[in-house]
Structure formats: C-alpha cells, structure tokens
Design a binder for these strands. Structure first.
Lengths: 185, 185
DNA sequence: CAGAGGGCTGGCCGATCGGTCAGTAGCGTT
DNA sequence: AACGCTACTGACCGATCGGCCAGCCCTCTG
C-alpha cells in the first residue's frame, strides 16, 4: 500500500478511537513507521488529512441526497436502506463525524458534515413534525452511529456477521423512521 | 454563586460543547472572569475539574443500578423511566460522557463511566441476547444521548417543553427496549 | 556522467498547553 | 499591631503541539 494511503488509514483509526485533537501528527507518523515531516509532505496540514478522510464519505451522502431530491422517487424505506448501507460502508468515519462534529465545527469539512446531516433531517420533514417525530429521527440516526462507534468498547458485540447487523439495523430504523401509521411515499 | 461553582458550570458548558481536550484552563478562567491560576487553586488539576463534574452524575447512575440489582424489584419499564429522568436531569453531562468517553478512557472518571454503562447493558441482559436485541440497546441508549447533544446543533428542536420531550423519549425507549413479545419482569 | 525531481528527514520555530510557586491583598482574631 | 488563614495572581517552567525549511538520498532521463 502506498504510504499516502497507509497514512490515511492510520489517521482514521486514531481519529476515530482517540479523537482528532488528541491524535498528534507525530503519533500518526510513528504508527506508520515514518516521520512527522513526511506526513506533512503527503498532506499539507492536519486539517487536510482529516478532509481527505471525511470528504469522500460526505460525497457519497450528498449523492444519496441528490438522488432522492432529484425525483423524489425514492420511497422512505429505500432511502433508509441505502442510508444504512452508507453507514456500514464507512463505519469508522460515521462515529468520527457524529461524536466529534460539534467539537470541530470550525474545521470546514466538519461544517460541511453538519450541513449534510441537517439536509437528511429536513428530508424526513421532521423539522416540522411533532415532537416525537423529531426525537425519533435523532434517536435513530444518533443511535445507529453510537452503536457502530461504542458497541465494541462496551463489549456488546462479538464477531457478528455484517449481514446480520445490516438486517437488524434496518429493522430497528424501519420501526423508528417508518412508523406503521405514517404514509410511506 | 461561589466562584468554585461558577467555574464548574462554565467548564461543563465548554467541555460539552467544545470538548474536554479543546477547552483550555485559560479559556475557562476567561469566561469566569478570573485567572488560570485561580482555577488551579479551586481544582488541583484539569482532570479533577472534570471528575467533580461527572462523578455526581455517575453516583446517581450507580444508585439506580444498586436499587435495581438489590431486589430486582424494578420492572424494566420502571427502570427505563428512572433512566430517562436521569438523562434529562443531567442533559449536559450525558453527551459529554457519551461522545468523549472513548476518547478519554485514560482519565479515571471516564473509565468509571464506561464501566457503569457496561453494567447498564448487562442489566438488560443484552450481552447474551440476539443480535437485534444488542443493537436495540445501542441504538436506544446512544440515540437518546445523541439527541440530547446534537438536536440543537442541527436546528431540530425549538423550545420544546421538557415534559413533552420526556414523554416522547419514554415512548421511543419503551418501543425499543421493552418489545411487545418480551416478558417485562 | 550530470542534472533534475520526487520522496523523505532532522532540526528548528512560535504558540499553547497543564501545572508550580512565591508572593500579596483582604479580613477576622488575639 | 501582629498574626494566620483564605482567596487569588503574575511570572515562569517543561512538554508538546502543528508547521516550516534546508538539505539528503535515490532513481530516472539526457
């Protein structure tokens, strides 16, 4: 693997587990077996290293939003399914954005993440819904992200097959976001 | 308000919104209109300032766990209700622990928080349950915490009366944690 | 062989961090 | 007046941070 990619992978591990602020460029360099200066050779700054990690995921999310808004063809259940797949695909980046987004809102890429999450919320038209509908969105979205982030820390997950996780999350999210008494399309 | 209490309040605001690592003692001092040295006069270290904020909340949680384990008298629904009240009472500390607990596991008070959360998980016997039951716990607990933390950031909540929030959260958590096909006691 | 350029590094910089310490201002007691 | 105690402060410390830079090594090209 090229050093550039390896540095990105190592940085993602550390940003997700120890936090962006608590992860020094020196530590990233040590874990990758190189020097701090070489990290700053591959990435012009620590912020840009974070951006190169997070931006592709936000691109995926934005694409999903555009697909949906473009034709409003997607039924809510379909959106939820694609959304879960996106979360599972980027299971390390999701908690990074969720847990540290508020802390790092001065970093441009995290501000973009917040804006996209707001658009997801508006998509479900929960900003104008009832209190419980608003809270259902918050619990569902934050709950899935938190589960992906902290389940291991609490020793809650063994080696659960990802297919099983996917199915279970879909069922839970479906229960929360597509209540039986709500029109789906 | 005594300066000691004011410093604790200011620090909690900053720890919860900007993060523990990103909040300097100097900033806490500035916001309270005093000097950094006086902060370290009232609290022997930054870690102890965090501990004085978090420990009382963990004491409450531990008390709830002891009440439950002692007689196993509490029905699951009762536990959920007391649990939600605890989260609402300490709505600033909860996201602090949830979002930054993993990052700060080297800080003793945060390690204690992780242990208590593990006990809550075990209480629901979800460690030995099916995949979807494990995930339901994660989604429920993390979801409520995330909602309390980030709803404002996404502009999802206006001035919702706390009673309404309490009722809604109870309903959502009840749906997630006390499924219809599960024996309650 | 000469030179150009990409990959990489050690050493350094200013800034900021948490924390220490000597010292002081105010105040009630003797 | 002299004391002791609490509250508080400015100056300073070593460590660490992100970032910069001159220069080295290697390979490819002419």
């Amino acid at each position: 693997m090229p050093l550039h990619d390896q540095l990105r992978a190592v940085a993602l591990d550390e940003f997700a587990s120890a936090g962006y602020a608590a992860t020094s460029l020196q530590r990233i360099a040590d874990l990758a077996g190189t020097s701090k200066a070489s990290v700053l050779y591959h990435f012009s700054s620590k912020e840009q290293l974070l951006a190169e990690i997070v931006d592709p995921v936000l691109d995926d999310l934005e694409r999903l939003l555009i697909d949906d808004e473009g034709g409003s063809v997607l039924r809510r259940a379909d959106f939820v399914e694609r959304f879960v797949d996106l979360l599972l695909t980027h299971s390390q980046v999701v908690p990074l954005v969720i847990n540290q987004g508020a802390t790092l809102d001065d970093v441009p890429v995290m501000h973009r993440a917040t804006e996209l999450m707001r658009r997801v919320a508006e998509l479900f038209r929960l900003a104008s819904g009832s209190t419980i509908e608003k809270l259902r969105f918050g619990v569902a979205f934050g709950g899935v992200a938190y589960t992906l982030a902290a389940a291991e820390r609490l020793g809650l997950n063994g080696e659960i097959p990802i297919d099983e996780v996917r199915t279970a999350l879909l069922e839970i999210l479906h229960d929360l976001l597509v209540p039986a008494d709500t029109p789906v399309a």
